[in-house]
Simulated scan of single mutants.
Amino acid sequence: MQVELPRHRERLERLGYQVIAPDLGGRQQFTAAELLQFKSRLVGIIAGDDELSREFFEGASKLRTVIRWGIGMDSVDHEAAREHGVTVRNTPGVFGAEVADAAFGYILNLTRGYIAVDSAIRRGEWPKVEGVTLAGSRLGIVGFGAIGREVAKRGHGFGMDVIASDPFVRDAPVGVTMVDLDKLLATSRFIVLACPLTPETFHLINADRLALIRPDAYVVNVARGPVVLEADLIACLKSGRLAGAALDVFEVEPLPPDSELRTLPNVVLGAHNGSNTREGVERASAAAVDFLVEELTR
């Protein structure tokens, strides 16, 4: 959001608000204590994955609204927000296309070995990696919101058989069959996790669920890291019970230096950056400011 602030600052200042944009200093997010430095003046906030904990809401007594820049809401203590009369909104649907593009970038890297081939060519080698054809393969999508639906569109473009699982969705577009999660895991060659992180999806993919997955399958997580129990996934990948995985997100971010995931050849690693395109940032920032103004002028 901060990179887009010059486009929107004047609009907010015309409404009589002082706009504060503290420097992250190269970090990913602010702690509650750091945000509370501004508590005496804070009436509205556009937040990333910052720590919007009970401590934050109890200290920011003048706060009226939180706008989560992006989609995920797991960094917000919603109960504390409700108790203190703070409205919380996100910017739904703004990154569907971008994250779906990233999911298929990961799928192609897993199945065609582009990263490994690139490294080999730079070393003077000339490898011929046998890949996997996407057309005719089954694509299973866990979570069928804006991102999941965009993943389905791309799956159809590749000629894939598309199924999805989502307890809150009954009617799916033509060409997508809704199934229960166990059937999806057991029958899909490619599994894309695109669900929100909630108490119900925390460690949704664990040893029991991984045992259902066919050994030639690939798992792509563009949701949230804790949707997957990483220790169980690592064990599965090391034993050969899963062909490969691509992870844009992790249980702990940034990925710890000693994570075994760094050592596995059948894993593609990202940096929680699937939504980050110029167009997506512009779209999300404009929506966040629109929602902030709407809430502050009620």
Rank of each mutant, 00 (worst) to 15 (best):
R9L: 11
L12I: 15
G16N: 12
P22C: 13
D23L: 10
F30K: 03
F30L: 12
T31K: 12
A32K: 03
A32C: 10
A33H: 08
G48L: 14
E51A: 15
E51F: 07
K62M: 13
R64S: 11
V66T: 07
G70S: 07
G72H: 03
S75T: 14
V76I: 15
E83Q: 14
E83I: 10
E83H: 09
H84N: 14
H84D: 03
T87L: 15
V94Y: 02
G96C: 07
E98K: 00
F104R: 01
Y106E: 03
I107M: 14
T111A: 13
I115M: 13
A116E: 13
R122V: 09
G124M: 09
E125P: 10
K128H: 14
E130D: 11
A135Y: 00
R138F: 09
R138D: 00
L139M: 11
F144A: 04
E150W: 06
A152R: 06
G157E: 12
V162K: 08
A164K: 01
P167G: 13
V169E: 09
V169Q: 10
V176G: 05
T177C: 10
K183W: 04
T187K: 13
R189N: 11
H203R: 10
H203F: 12
L204V: 02
L210E: 06
V220A: 03
N221L: 02
A223F: 05
L237M: 10
L242I: 08
A246P: 07
E251G: 01
P254D: 04
P256F: 12
V267S: 02
S275Q: 05
V289M: 05
V289L: 06
F291D: 09
E294Q: 14
L296F: 14
